[in-house]
């Protein structure tokens, strides 16, 4: 982790929050993986283990009233935006106490009260929704900012390009966050994308584009913070590309060793975003190892509680099948 001007200005509470959220995402995904592998029928799940710094670095730059649009690999975005892991886990168990009352599942897990614009597994489509939220902010003069997470795979989707053009011509307060984890399902980014840095595509839409180390939460935060300030000041959209890595396969059933090497994975794990923040903060004596250990202990307890809550919650009533098809009068 490289020191850069301004980082010392992050309050200690901010660093603790980043560590706490990244560690909670990691704990959530690891616990979920164990549950799925021992037979909990959570449907298709796309673990974001390894990518925690992107979700947390970006959400650290946002205010509570700001929006995020998320992807099929969205558990980390939810937690970074403040979602309750008990209700998230209940959703994955298909329980009525879930964030979506058991009607969404992993690929739609959403808490709209936190400014989540939904989680979108139709790759790239959620990016347009963030642009719509930015339009809403501009029309209503509410000064809210919308951040759109999307992968390197989505960067080839027409919707993303249309969204970028609209945000640029209307100067909307949108931050496009590309989580480049190197793979779209099993297809490597260097095969599917014509540019070396996806951030270079920002030039085509006349907006700032920056490529950063997505395994460095402070680098992500720093770039996102600048982009959010730019957006909130009415200067229009930006594109922040975060180069990151997905530790596991595309989904729970995917064996990534059919298309990448163990050596590559080990090299990525050496740059683990949580361990790097720990080393940096303890070396700088900003936070003690004991404090960080205590955070991890607390997060394990939160997940114990979340699993218990999910297991003990009731299933949806069968009548729920037919509710909320149409939007009723308020």
């Amino acid at each position: 982790m490289i020191d850069r001007p301004g980082q010392e200005a992050i309050p200690r509470e901010g660093l603790l929050w980043m560590y706490e959220r990244m560690s909670l995402i990691r704990e959530f995904e690891e616990r979920l993986k164990w549950l799925v592998e021992t037979g909990v029928p959570a449907g298709p799940v796309h673990y974001c283990t390894g990518q925690e710094a992107v979700a947390v670095g970006v959400c650290a730059a946002l205010e509570a009233g700001d929006w995020i649009a998320s992807t099929h690999r969205g558990h980390g975005h939810c937690i970074a935006k403040g979602a309750d892991v008990r209700r998230m886990m209940a959703e994955l168990y298909g329980k009525s106490s879930g964030t979506n009352r058991g009607k969404g599942g992993s690929m739609h897990i959403t808490d709209a009260s936190l400014g989540m614009l939904g989680v979108n597994p139709i790759v790239g489509m959620g990016v347009t929704h963030a642009v719509g939220a930015g339009l809403s902010s501009k029309v209503r003069q509410s000064k809210q900012v919308a951040a759109a997470f999307f992968g390197d795979g989505a960067s080839s989707q027409g919707a993303v390009h249309e969204a970028m053009n609209l945000a640029a011509i209307w100067k909307l307060p949108v931050v496009f966050v590309c989580e480049n984890n190197g793979y779209a399902d099993a297809t490597p980014v260097e095969y599917a994308v014509a540019v070396n840095n996806i951030a270079d595509r920002a030039a085509a839409y006349n907006m700032p584009g920056l490529s950063v180390d997505g395994q460095d939460v402070l680098a992500v935060w720093s770039a996102a913070d600048a982009a959010v300030r730019h957006a909130r000041a009415g200067e229009g959209p930006s594109l922040v590309e975060c180069k990151t890595y997905r530790y596991y396969g595309h989904h729970q059933g995917d064996d990534p060793h059919r298309y990448r090497t163990v050596e590559e994975e080990n090299a990525a794990r050496e740059r683990d975003c949580i361990q790097r923040l720990r080393r940096w903060a303890t070396t700088k004596k900003l936070i003690s190892a004991d404090e960080l250990d205590a955070i991890e202990t607390k997060n394990r307890a939160l997940l114990d509680d979340a699993v218990r809550f999910a297991e003990q919650s009731p299933l949806p009533d069968p009548s729920e099948l037919l509710t909320d098809v149409y939007v009723a009068e308020p």
């Binding site: 939904g118 347009t128 719509g132 919707a159 969204a163 609209l166």
Partner: peptide, 25 residues
């Protein structure tokens, strides 16, 4: 501000309308 000509970009502007409908418009 309230009457927006769009580029020829149906997927983009219908998607933006979906997002705007979710956020107060």
């Amino acid at each position: 501000q309230r009457v927006l000509d769009t580029p020829i970009s149906e997927m983009g502007f219908v998607g933006a309308a979906v997002g705007a409908a979710m956020t107060g418009l």
